[in-house]
Amino acid sequence: GSMEQGFLPKGWEVRHAPNGRPFFIDHNTKTTTWEDPRLKIPA
């Protein structure tokens, strides 16, 4: 929902695949990933 959306880094969006699995869109680089960007520790 909109709650989890608010925690994503700037430029990211979460969508759900037809099977219900969430995936993440990085509008900054125009890419998608199954990995939650929030789980990655910034270098």
Rank of each mutant, 00 (worst) to 15 (best):
P9R: 05
I41K: 10
T32H: 07
H27D: 04
T33R: 04
G11K: 02
R38D: 03
P37N: 00
K30T: 06
S2Q: 14
E35H: 14
F24P: 02
P22V: 14
L8T: 00
F7Y: 11
F7K: 15
D26Q: 00
F24L: 00
T29M: 05
S2E: 10
I25N: 00
I25T: 04
N28A: 07
D36R: 01
L8N: 01
I25V: 09
R21V: 09
L8I: 05
T32S: 09
Q5K: 11
T33K: 00
D36H: 06
W12D: 01
D36V: 02
T29Q: 05
P9D: 02
W12Q: 01
L39M: 12
E35D: 13
G6W: 14
R15T: 05
N19R: 00
L39Q: 12
N28D: 06
Q5P: 11
R38L: 02
A17S: 09
P18G: 08
E13M: 02
K40H: 14
L39R: 07
H27Y: 08
E4Q: 14
A43P: 12
G1T: 12
D36N: 02
S2M: 13
K40C: 15
N19I: 03
G6H: 11
T31F: 08
E4I: 15
F24I: 01
P42I: 11
D26I: 01
P22S: 07
W12E: 03
D36G: 01
H27N: 08
P9I: 05
D26F: 06
A43D: 12
W34Y: 08
P37T: 00
Q5W: 11
T33M: 05
R21S: 06
G11Q: 02
H16D: 06
N19A: 01
A43Q: 11
T31M: 08
S2P: 12
W12H: 02
D26T: 01
S2L: 12
G11M: 03
R21Y: 06
F7H: 14
D26E: 02
I25Y: 15
I41D: 13
H16K: 09
D36Y: 04
T29V: 01
F7E: 15
G11N: 06
D26R: 00
W12V: 01
K10L: 10
H16M: 15
I25A: 03
F7R: 15
A43I: 12
W12K: 01
G1M: 13
I41S: 13
P18Q: 09
K30M: 09
E35A: 09
T32F: 14
H27S: 06
R38N: 04
N28I: 08
R15E: 03
